[in-house]
């Protein structure tokens, strides 16, 4: 006879785990933080960083990746992928990233756009490279 637990035990355990995840998801999605610099990485390498607080008008540019091209659009405080030649277009559907901790990701192109905090007192005034 194998050792088993009651249905109620499993229900309670998994419900608790679910609530924890759902809560964390909401927190990561909604909470605006001090993250104002958009960091674009391709294949894990930083290809561009944009201080979204310095953006004054909506503008677009392209990012070339080994898999194809993503068109990225920024506006004051926000960034999104507006066009892409990837198969699923999930990156475009994710819409605007504005302060949340959950990055925009285009898995076929290995492109990730995440927000990082915009500098503390020790940060340089600009970065060369």
């Amino acid at each position: 006879m194998k050792r088993t637990f009651s249905n109620r035990f499993w229900a309670a355990l998994l419900a608790a785990a679910f609530l924890l995840c759902a809560g964390a998801a909401l927190l990561l999605w909604r909470t605006p933080g001090a993250r104002t610099v958009a960091r674009i990485t391709v294949d894990g390498r930083v290809v561009r960083e944009i201080d979204l607080t310095a953006v004054t008008a909506e503008a677009s540019f392209t990012v070339q990746t080994p898999g194809g091209v993503n068109t990225v659009t920024v506006r004051p405080g926000g960034i999104c992928v507006s066009e892409a030649d990837c198969p699923d277009h999930v990156c475009v559907k994710q819409g605007w990233l504005e302060g949340g901790a959950v990055p925009i990701v285009c898995l076929p192109h290995r492109l990730v756009i995440s927000l990082v905090s915009g500098g503390d007192g020790d940060a340089p005034d600009a970065v060369s490279g």
Binding site: A34, D51, A101
Partner: peptide, 27 residues
């Protein structure tokens, strides 16, 4: 990620402009 939430908001740079030209981001 939670740590980053606690940092104070960065000051807004009103006297700067970011635009895109020559295939890159300029500020």
């Amino acid at each position: 990620c939670l740590l980053a939430l606690c940092l104070p908001a960065a000051a807004r740079a009103d006297d700067s402009r970011t635009f895109f030209a020559m295939d890159t981001v300029m500020t």
